[in-house]
Design a protein around this nucleic acid. Structure first.
Lengths: 113, 113
DNA sequence: CAGAATCCAGGATGATACTG
DNA sequence: CAGTATCATCCTGGATTCTG
């Protein structure tokens, strides 16, 4: 079985890209972690993450909901009260986030020195 | 121990962000995987990843080298022949990439249905 | 409180041509 | 082959204001 020239590796890559689409970017993981750590309301999440604007938070929450990582529930009182929580599917991300955390720590050690 | 209002979770988040800075974005992981799979020369890597332009590849390779994930060696012949390979540090990413791959597969199943 | 609507700037990305 | 140089473009992200 000969090795191909410039092997095209898109097949093995697509799932990785899917993952990055869903949790990559500047804010998505931060928002997920914030919710995991107990922040459930819009302003709560917003204030827990420095430099996060309302528009960006709003956009990102929609994406996360579309990808079924979080669910949104709205109270019927006034003022309106919403709550964002992780779905079961969202919870499957925790292991991956932990891995990313660990590697980040390792990398910082490696680079700083 | 009372739970804080809008708990600020930046401390637990910084390492995750480091990781995303290093391997996030549209191309970095694809390039790493391409090298892992046996593509070592500039044109080889370029052709293995659809829609990747030479400028972007060049930029990204520099970033990866700066972060000590890959190393670059140049032959003394003509035409010039370069080879990119994973460093030991770069290899520590393989586990994480595998996790991302697995989660991507899981997620696609979840969403498609 | 929860978010939508606008508007805007800067960086990331891309296409193409060129050099050694 | 292995890139660099330029220039165009897209798009994320950010500031601000406004509504229910």
């Amino acid at each position: 079985m000969k090795k191909l020239e410039h092997k095209n590796c898109m097949l093995s890559i697509l799932p990785v890209r899917d993952t990055l689409d869903v949790i990559g970017g500047k804010w998505k993981i931060l928002i997920l972690i914030s919710i995991m750590e107990g922040n459930h309301h819009f302003r709560e999440i917003e204030r827990s993450i420095p430099n996060l604007s309302t528009k960006v938070l709003s956009d990102q929450l929609k994406d996360l909901e579309t990808n079924q990582l979080i669910s949104r529930s709205v109270s019927n009182g006034f003022p309106v009260r919403t709550a964002y929580t992780l779905t079961e599917h969202g919870k499957t991300l925790q292991k991956l986030i932990l891995e990313m955390h660990n590697w980040g720590v390792l990398h910082r050690k490696k680079i700083i020195q």
